[in-house]
Write a protein that binds this DNA or RNA. Structure first.
Lengths: 228, 228
DNA sequence: GCAAATTAATGATTTATTCAAG
DNA sequence: CTTGAATAAATCATTAATTTGC
């Protein structure tokens, strides 16, 4: 094996100049996880106007103390720039649909679903797949903690005699608050294993090219609620 | 707003038949995060031979207790099948390169870097971008906890006089072991914000279509170590 | 010596936590 | 303060080492 040096796009100072029109940028998806590289695939040509300093634009250290920081610099250089229009601001319609889907039982949509949802929601305003992805992540998490707090509160309300002083906010600051109340009902139904797909594969075979649009039932009937 | 029902690919029972040659499947990237949908983008036509039952193939519940489970079913149906060759098994060369990059300071490569690394490592065996992504995630995390444990051990060894009984394994089972020892040196340098890119955008503009291959310095000189 | 059983590593996912924009 | 975006921690699951019985 030779492993020359594998150029890794190191435009260091390049970025620290000013507007740094960085190339593709790729975050790392947290909650569920998507390799950053995948993104560029979805939107090869991201609009994102110039935008001098999207957010904080953490000032890259100039000294480069150690090799450790190299990656830091890299991140500075490559990822900060394309913050474009800043973050997604969902329209009421979009939120309505998303909540509907959530109430319908959708928790972590897969790529196909996300694609479709994104496409559908695109009618009501600009939206990207990652937004849908994140929305479900956050909504799930926050609904959960909301329920947890509510349950806690209910408990403390029910047997309020046990506590000498009724604290106003049930926050459980120091406690580990381990897996109590898995709420979600049957969330822990094992973990399904998924496959990803890649961009740099050496061409092994060919499957799943059919975009699975075989059956596609409606998510839920949803009768004309409210305005719609 | 109308929001019909937005078909979300609901082929429920379809999958429970047997081999379920599901379409695209999309995991959610954990550590760093990538929207699952993005994956299919990177490798539109994933090979994956038939593979009757890749792994566990969790038996989908037949009863469908509530709406909640619908998503579960969905997952069963769509994501389980394409487990293909199961998981990536890195070759020694690949590991060597990855570790070198890590020691060189790379911590969370962005999409471009991942792409390049994947391409490079592809010479030594099948590899996908997600593997690189995951590798850095896991390696980072595990190096961190390794260092943490080592530090703990060192501490307990140094002032062993404080403890009445010297426990053999410093495990800190019940303690919260909060953010002590952020080890990594300058890891908490703020959080850089990245942009993703999407696939379902409504075509707003066009930037960053240049694949950023402008400067591309070598990651690190790395003189001919060992065999190379 | 080899194959089944067990254990240790580690690849892959999910959940929790944090940061920061509006 | 709400919540979109991102990261880190915890967890699960599978593969490789290793051990054990024959």
């Amino acid at each position: 094996m030779r492993l020359h040096h594998l150029h890794v796009a190191y435009q260091l100072d390049k970025a620290s100049s000013s507007s740094c029109p960085a190339p593709s940028i790729s975050p790392s998806i947290p909650g569920s996880a998507f390799p950053a590289f995948a993104l560029k695939c979805l939107r090869p040509l991201a609009p994102k106007i110039s935008l001098p300093e999207p957010r904080k634009t953490i000032a890259p250290p100039d000294f480069v103390p150690r090799a450790r920081n190299v990656s830091k610099l890299l991140n500075y250089a490559v990822q900060v720039p394309t913050a474009g229009t800043t973050r997604w601001n969902p329209s009421p319609e979009q939120i309505k649909v998303l909540e509907m889907l959530y109430r319908g039982g959708m928790r972590t949509p897969n790529s196909v679903q996300i694609e479709r949802i994104t496409e559908e929601l695109g009618k009501y305003g600009r939206i990207e797949g990652k937004n849908v992805f994140y929305w479900f992540q956050n909504h799930k998490a926050r609904e959960r903690q909301k329920q947890k707090r509510a349950a806690l509160l209910t408990l403390s309300t029910l047997d309020s005699s046990s506590l000498p002083s009724n604290q106003t906010k049930v926050d459980m600051p120091d406690e580990k608050k381990k897996k109590e109340l898995h709420d979600d009902g049957l969330t822990s139904c094992k973990r399904r294993c998924k496959a990803w797909g890649d961009g740099a594969g050496d061409g092994d075979a060919a499957t799943e090219d059919a975009t699975d649009d075989d059956v596609t039932l409606e998510l839920f009937p949803l009768r004309p609620l409210g305005k719609a």
